[in-house]
Amino acid sequence: MRGQGRGLQVYAALYLLFLYAPIILLPLFAFNSGTIIAFPLQGFTTGWFAQMWANATLRTALTNSLIIAVSASILATCLGIFAARASTRFEFPGKGGMMGFILLPMVLPEIIVAMSLLVVLLGMGVQLSILTVIVGHTLICMPYAIAILTTAFSSLDKSLEEAAYDLGETRWSAFRLITLPLVMPGIISSLLISFTISLDEFIIAFFLAGNQPTLPTYIFSQLRFPKQIPMIMALGTALVALSIVLLALGEYFRRRGNARMGGNPTGGFL
């Protein structure tokens, strides 16, 4: 028992090291004064961050990405609320099939989503822009939003809303006063996770953005130039820090929601 547990523990630790290896390297190279990404490290510098800050294209890419991520996460979460409520609260013929179809982008290779959408958009003569990326990102964020929101909605006792209705509220005010506050942690998690997915999404942005840069497409274009890589490492470090903050926030809201419902604080994302 002890021996086996010990072995597994060592393995799990090594596995975590494997998972974190790239992330540990990231700040090392971001603060390394050498221009080539290789060991041994040269010296400490914050110059790459300064260079990143001064880069105008990067700023445009960041602005675009933020606009896309905020829009897509709000749209996906709104659509997700509809779907989650429909699936947890109502029974109707064909529900399983419709829900399955909405969740399909989760298991469909992104290249196919991107390509088919691109073909149609080009065929219709639609000008590619960050708007078309928002459309695509909303589609792929929606299943994740639904997964999170369905959990939030289904842990809700159906009679809570009925009780509010019974006590004189309207259907809408019962939803607003009771359901909405109780699923709010789920909504915030959904927004954060959709935001993170959109911010990091490459393929759809790559094909649907036209000549507009987003963060991932900008990073992709710069990876070809060895000179630019230290700056990309600095950017990556900043993004990792941002992701961790957003995730910690999401987790915090999820747990607080659980605690408020008197539930137990286990489980995780997805």
Binding site: D157, S159, L160, E162, A163, A164, D166, L167, I178, P181, L182, R260, M261, G262
Partner: peptide, 13 residues
């Protein structure tokens, strides 16, 4: 009419 629900439906928040 008013109802007492099986789960009581006490608003937890």
């Amino acid at each position: 009419t008013n109802m007492v629900f099986q789960s009581y439906a006490i608003f937890p928040h």
